[in-house]
Nucleic acid binder design. Structure first.
Length: 655
DNA sequence: CTAGGGTTAG
């Protein structure tokens, strides 16, 4: 009978009369419909709800949500059913009630999810959500954990300023911002790579007299590792112990990861061995710990040790996971052992771990690097058949693979295809294409691509600008390079070391010695310079015949130590050879060995080419033998063109 | 919370 009122014909009439009835006294029409809605929700009669949902008012919805506070699952079901409707869209309050209920039930995941929905799909600002949450605080019993959830929702959806705004506002209104919320924000700031801001926020937090907990300390360790300040990270660890805070495995993992990133594998292993002692026996390594070490060794090309760690891990009863194998597979692939990588993949499948996108990405990348386009095609179709979704990494890998194998136009077509299908695009992919367009002497095409990024709503990053600048510098178009540089400054992007080095290289190639020197002085003032900077300048001095300056520079580079690398010696050897000073050049080769800077194929080519121009075949062969005996891998092109012919020639003499 | 895959310099 009552339900008959809601047949589609009479519904509108009813709703209209509802507004009328609002003014009149008991029992108000809202009361009636409220009761009807509640009864139907209790009986899960969704059809009824679906029929009326579009005409439910905010206040009524709020009442309904409050009524069902103690049945969170039912409430969630109601919300999900009518969530897409306009009524609920406008009812920020009811959603906030639901959020409070979820937080009360410690269902933080759902609460965060609802908040992200409000901000990302429904367009509410973080501060609007905050205000609504505060307004509904009085009717709900929820604690300030709801604010933690809001900050988490902001950081998870990338709203950095939103999250910080919420923290500020809460402090202004005298609400308590928990240490968890601070930690979450600090973690987010680190993840987006803003270490400087991390320390600012940390100092701010400390100024409000917060006490760091174990997670805060872990974040400090992480930040210091990011800055390659390992010993400071370790001392933070001890400071934590002194405070009586018990360490957890995460802190150790961060230290070990930091040591691996700083290529100090001995330290990483030492830390692994000392986890027990340093934690008073309460912490033991987990899969992450071992994975960090395995990755460290893989990146150093020490695959036997990496695999030994895998064995040790199994021995210690720590189960290897997909990341363990993905790391090793990539390690083998990047060091040229694709067959081994496939063997490991088979083994992994036998251990009932299914290869994921990351594993496919590694294989595809390294197959492309080997020029095995057919292999790539097989893997890509395999991925499709197994419904393993490609991601933005896959796209970049394909684009780069195509470019590298000479199909820049195919890569561009692939890119347009992605755009057409509205598939994920990022700056990374554009950077690859821009780079190859520049390399194929098409800076104007690269410029077009850069402009198209703005149209697609993608923000070019430092690498994008750096790649463009380098492209123009290499093409000798310094004015265009300068234009890109100023464009970059205009959008508040700071130049980095790579960009300065590119500009310096351009200036040196132009033989603008004064400008080059000026730039280097400026870089020194900003404390932004490295071996590349000095190598570029050194090369520039030699090219312009400034021999004295070059040698003086070399001397001061050696004094500094860290400014000298293989490239430095290659440059020196090249010019010594050009001047006919072969004995001096060879002296530098032995210095290279003694400094653990093993000559590479460029050293080989430089020496062999120069020697063959001016000296006898015997000397060329002697040099070749000497280098090979010392473990230098010859450049195959130089060997075929220069050394191999003279070997057969001299061999003929002895016949 | 921490670990794996893609971009720039000589």
């Amino acid at each position: 009978m009552f339900l008959g009122l809601f047949s589609s014909k009479s519904r509108n009439l009813f709703v209209r009369s509802l507004h009328f009835a609002k003014q009149s006294t008991r029992p108000s029409a809202e009361d009636i419909i409220f009761k009807a809605v509640c009864v139907n929700i209790r009986q899960k009669k969704w059809k009824f709800l679906d029929q009326v949902s579009s005409s439910l008012t905010n206040s009524l919805l709020s009442r309904v949500f409050l009524e069902f506070q103690s049945s969170p699952q039912l409430l969630l079901e109601v919300y999900r059913r009518i969530g897409g409707q306009k009524a609920i869209l406008d009812s920020l309050e009811s959603c906030c009630i639901l959020i409070h209920v979820m937080v009360d039930r410690r269902n933080y995941g759902e609460a965060v999810c609802l908040m992200k929905e409000l901000m990302m799909s429904k367009g509410y600002l973080p501060l609007e959500v905050l205000e609504a949450l505060i307004n509904s605080l009085s009717v709900c019993s929820s604690s300030s954990a709801v604010f933690d959830a809001l900050i988490r929702a902001c950081t998870q959806s990338g709203a950095t300023e939103g999250a910080y705004g919420v923290i500020k506002k809460l402090r202004m209104e005298n609400y308590w911002v928990s240490i968890h919320a601070w930690n979450n924000f600090l973690n987010h700031v680190l993840k987006i790579g803003e270490v400087g801001r991390f320390w600012m926020v940390y100092r701010e937090m400390i100024s409000y007299e917060y006490y760091e907990n174990v997670n805060t300390f872990n974040l400090l360790i992480y930040a210091l590792c990011e800055e390659c300040k390992l010993s400071e990270a370790i001392s933070v660890f001890y400071r934590m112990l002194k405070r009586g805070i018990l360490p957890n495995v995460v802190g150790f993992n961060m230290l070990i990861h930091g040591a691996c990133c700083a290529k100090d594998l001995d330290l990483a292993v030492k830390l692994l061995k000392k986890i027990g002692a340093m934690s008073g026996g309460i912490v033991s390594p987990n899969a992450v710990t071992y994975n960090c070490l395995i990755n460290g060794y893989c990146k150093q090309g020490k695959l036997e040790i990496a695999e030994r760690i895998l064995d040790e891990m199994i021995e210690m009863d720590v189960k290897p996971n997909i990341r363990t194998y993905a790391t090793l597979i990539d390690g083998y692939s990047r060091n040229g052992y694709l067959e081994e990588a496939f063997r490991l993949c088979h083994y992994m499948v036998e251990s009932e771990l299914i290869p994921n996108t990351v594993v496919y990405n590694s294989f595809i990348h390294w197959l492309y690097m080997e020029g095995d386009i057919g292999g790539v095609a097989l893997l890509l179709s395999d991925m499709m058949m197994k419904y393993i979704p490609p991601d933005r990494f896959t796209h970049s890998i394909i684009a780069k693979g195509l470019c590298r194998n000479g199909h820049v136009n195919e890569a561009l077509k692939f890119h347009s295809w992605l755009a057409e299908k509205n598939l994920v695009e990022d700056a990374f992919l554009h950077n690859i294409l821009i780079n190859y367009l520049c390399r194929t002497n098409n800076p104007s095409g690269a410029k077009q691509l850069l402009c198209s990024m703005f149209v697609r709503g993608l923000i070019p990053d430092q690498v994008t600008y750096g790649t463009m600048i380098d492209g123009y510098c290499k093409a000798g178009e310094m004015e265009s390079a300068a234009k890109v540089y100023t464009d970059m400054i205009k959008v508040d992007k700071n130049p980095n070391l790579v960009i300065f080095n590119s500009l310096l290289d351009g200036l040196c190639k132009e033989e603008s010695v004064d400008c080059s020197r000026f730039l280097v002085d400026e870089m020194k003032r900003l404390n932004m310079y490295d071996a590349v900077t000095y190598n570029t300048l050194l090369n520039g001095y030699f090219r312009t015949g400034m021999i004295k300056e070059a040698f003086d520079l070399f001397t001061s580079m050696r004094k500094a130590g860290f400014l000298v690398n293989k490239v430095t010696y290659n440059i020196m050897i090249n010019f010594l050879c050009k001047f006919g000073l072969f004995e001096h050049a060879k002296e530098l080769v032995s210095i290279m060995f003694s400094q653990d800077l093993a000559p590479d194929f460029i050293t080989y080519t430089t020496l062999v080419t120069n020697l063959s121009n001016k000296r006898s075949s015997e000397e060329v062969i002697k040099l070749h033998d000497y280098l090979v005996l010392q473990g230098v891998i010859p450049d195959s092109q130089s060997y075929e063109a220069i050394v191999s012919p003279v070997i057969t020639e001299t061999a003929g003499e002895f016949e």
